[in-house]
Design a protein around this nucleic acid. Sequence first.
DNA 1: CGAATTTTTGAATAACTTCAACAAACGTGG
DNA 2: CCACGTTTGTTGAAGTTATTCAAAAATTCG
Lengths: 287, 287
Amino acid sequence: MADHKSCDRRAKSGQDLFSAGEPCDAIFNLVEGWAFHYQLLADGRRQILDFALPGAVLGFDGLSGAAMTYGVQALTDAVFCVVPRRALGPLSRRHPGIGLHLASSIARDRDAAFARLTSIGRQSARERVAHLMLELFVRRRSQWPGHRIEEMHLPLTQEHIGDATGLTGVHVNRVLADLKKDGILTFSYRRLVILDPDRLVDVAEADPGLVQSWIQYGVIEQEPGAETLNRGLASTGVDGPRQAQDGCVAPFTEVRRGASGAAHFGRSQAQRSAHPVVRLANQRCAC
Amino acid sequence: MADHKSCDRRAKSGQDLFSAGEPCDAIFNLVEGWAFHYQLLADGRRQILDFALPGAVLGFDGLSGAAMTYGVQALTDAVFCVVPRRALGPLSRRHPGIGLHLASSIARDRDAAFARLTSIGRQSARERVAHLMLELFVRRRSQWPGHRIEEMHLPLTQEHIGDATGLTGVHVNRVLADLKKDGILTFSYRRLVILDPDRLVDVAEADPGLVQSWIQYGVIEQEPGAETLNRGLASTGVDGPRQAQDGCVAPFTEVRRGASGAAHFGRSQAQRSAHPVVRLANQRCAC
DNA sequence: CGAATTTTTGAATAACTTCAACAAACGTGG
DNA sequence: CCACGTTTGTTGAAGTTATTCAAAAATTCG
């Protein structure tokens, strides 16, 4: 797999990793920072499709050489691990697990898109904003297991929230004002405070399974006796997580292994299982 | 691969293939009929996530044994090919192409979900309805290469259109009335007539790349010198399409191979290429 | 500190929903 | 083939939700 080593890439906040319409010959593993998928309409209207946290796989569209249908922009300064698209074929032939693995990762992205579709299509502005804030809160907090803080920095503006929920920034502001008045949450100048988690879950109409999926956004699936599947694509261990401690011999980094983040943040998956954590989040990929 | 043969399954119009919340231990290949993915909110609001035509792969969620986050319902009487989820691991180990293949298929689903997100989130009711009608028209017509008809049967009610576009059925009706008044299209009692394709594309704000992706929804990607990737998962030929004529020795059916469906519906891919069509659409899977 | 960005607020408007009633097409059994 | 019940579609009026435009206040960043 050492053959597939490749360079990494840095992007400044606000900079595009790639844009809609251009072909993308590589896939990227977000190692550090935040990014988002988006699409633009001809007149400039923007839809944010998904927020990506460290561990996300970006840029795989199934059709190599085809133009991307969406763009990816860095929300903060960010670091990506680059894998040439052409390397995937040989790679998956040598390591049969990687294909299913990737499929699994993309399926999770699709499910997230489905969830957002339902939110935007069928929920009120209040529900949508609550939904997104809850999702980002849970996903972000699950990266810092052990922390219980209900206050955190989210690198978004209210305009971003609007573009993600299908609302105008102005209306998002009014909705946030309401949520604050009701003692549910506050969000201003990139600072989110959850005042009443239970009522937030209630307003968001988030069922427990959905919240669980946010928590497990980066957690491994392990097929008994088969290869390891996880979101970030295991650093090494395609035939089992045991090899994962050998260091970075592949372009992918398992970043959020062990992110449990369940309601009360019990011990992480890594602590429960015998398998070691490959690499801490927010740490640069060494390949 | 003969080991992985499995039964097929039939569903009547309106019947659920599986529901949100229940685990799904198999993936399904839609062989005949229409279906759709959907989610329900607690109070009964419904969001239709995607319409599935023959060739679609349904039920793969990446996490075996986990509860599905969405349900799938048959829109017409339908026939599915069933592949136990457990068979995928061994299968992909023996045929390394199949994992990437599946990833590719799911990536296309995700991209479709992204497109719908942008439509629902940022387009007006008129644009959304035009968008969906155009998509379904193009996808359906590409299954019948050679046909130029601009009139077709779509097995949907206006209520379905509403649930897919995030509108009420009543409002969909008004929008359709407008589109008819403007000489763009007609849809009533499951009959769609495209009156002015160019203006429809215009109203839908569909860029050519997107339309192309609808057309190619079931078309093969062929990595030079590598394995074949296509939506339905190739019947046989994991190492190349040449094996595809051996008959149905796998649980998957390549249904829409050769569906070109480009603007003027020239000869199909199958006719152009030397590779035979594995199996006609709308024909039962023999496994 | 000063400039740029982001948030906040108000008033008027537009878009979509809701409720309710009626009409048209479908399909089923006699 | 027709009558009848059911589903689906169509229309109107009123109400709600979210947008637009515009301006001012707050915060951040260099």
